[in-house]
């Protein structure tokens, strides 16, 4: 379904997939997942919640750590990946497909110019 090379990435290791002119799907990269280790719980916002670019909107937990996830775009949460509640391991197994986090409907014109493409992101993570 999703090919990593079509995605855009943030420096905070979120990925963004453009679903339509005004909506995106957001997840976290395989690099981020590897850093986090075995993910045991994902806390997502409620549907219809308003999120603002750069702010925390989800929490991902391993056995002994919690990490905040920041949204790369502003808008309204239109859909959440409810299956993560019972199967958080999907994030480890399939970060770009079954492990997606939320869909966001953006309020203003979609501006993804701050994000990196897959190649640039690869170079970025190699440099870390």
């Amino acid at each position: 379904m999703t090919d990593k090379k079509d995605l855009l990435f943030s420096k905070d290791h979120e990925w963004v997939e453009r679903l339509s002119d005004n909506s995106v799907r957001v997840g976290i990269s395989d690099y981020a997942v590897e850093q986090l280790g075995d993910i045991v719980f994902v806390e997502l916002p409620e549907v219809d919640a308003t999120v603002e670019a750069g702010s925390e909107f989800a929490t991902v937990e391993s056995v002994k750590s919690t990490s905040e996830i920041y949204t790369p775009v502003s808008g309204t949460v239109s859909n959440i990946n409810e299956s993560l509640e019972d199967e958080p391991e999907k994030l480890n197994e399939s970060p770009y497909e079954e492990g997606w986090l939320v869909d966001i409907t953006v309020s203003e014109e979609l501006d993804l110019s701050d994000l990196m493409d897959a190649k640039a992101y690869q170079e970025y993570t190699d440099s870390l």
């Binding site: 045991v40 719980f41 391993s62 056995v63 002994k64 750590s65 919690t66």
Partner: peptide
């Protein structure tokens, strides 16, 4: 279990 609820991990959160 569920230790991420606790102060020694979450500290000021």
């Amino acid at each position: 279990t569920l230790q991420t609820r606790e102060q020694h991990i979450r500290r000021e959160k």
